[in-house]
Amino acid sequence: MIPSEDTIYRLDHVTRESPEVLTLSFAPEAGELMQFHAGQYVYVDMIERPKRLPSRPYSISSSPSDAFVSVSVKKLGAFSGALHELTPGSRVILRGPAGNFIPQPSMKKLVFIAGGIGIAPFLSILKGFVGRNAQDQEVLLFYSNKRREDIVFFGELQGITQALRGVRIVYCLTQQEEKADEAGEYRRFDGSMLKQYCSKFGMQDYFLCGSVPFVTETSQVLEHAGVLCQRIHAELFY
């Protein structure tokens, strides 16, 4: 277990992923970058704000081997709105790492199911696989969004599928009109999709990340299909 600690970090740079999502990359003010497992999260505490907001947890979207600790933040409320206003050089406390949303090395056949910005920890995990050149790792990622423009990290994800032959991505768009020349699904993840994509694949461990309703519904789909609850691992964004 990597010990959790509070360290002051400075915002190094900001990457706009979509109109609503920014990736904030932090470097420690002094000392080493924190060690973490791909899939874990950190608490972000904006210490420079005149009116302090309570810290909030964010999944790390960078890889453990990257030079920064990055979080990808969708603008949803007061805290994420304030994070979006940070400028390079801003100081924050990153407390962590925390969480056990970590695929074990023995899990060679994985299904990842991401709802919206719930893609963040999966990006970290997949980049970790690329870093290790894990060609024997089989991953099927269902990435669900309402509309095409909500998809973030598209370029990076496509790069990952090219780097690792065992990684396959199914984009699910739940509120988008179907386009004949585009691959993907135009519906929610459901039992038939699970059967269509997973039954031949012999997938064994399922990782789910997203909002509470998304994870609850998706988890129920898996359970109804007979997946053992010990094989279902979840991270909730709340």
Binding site: V215, T216, S219, C229, Q230, A234, L236
Partner: peptide
């Protein structure tokens, strides 16, 4: 048990009772 707890509480999907 995990099965019942998961049905009652979404947070129980993030960990087992033993964890």
């Amino acid at each position: 048990d995990d099965k019942t707890r998961r049905e009652l509480m979404p947070v129980a999907r993030t960990h087992t009772v033993l964890e």
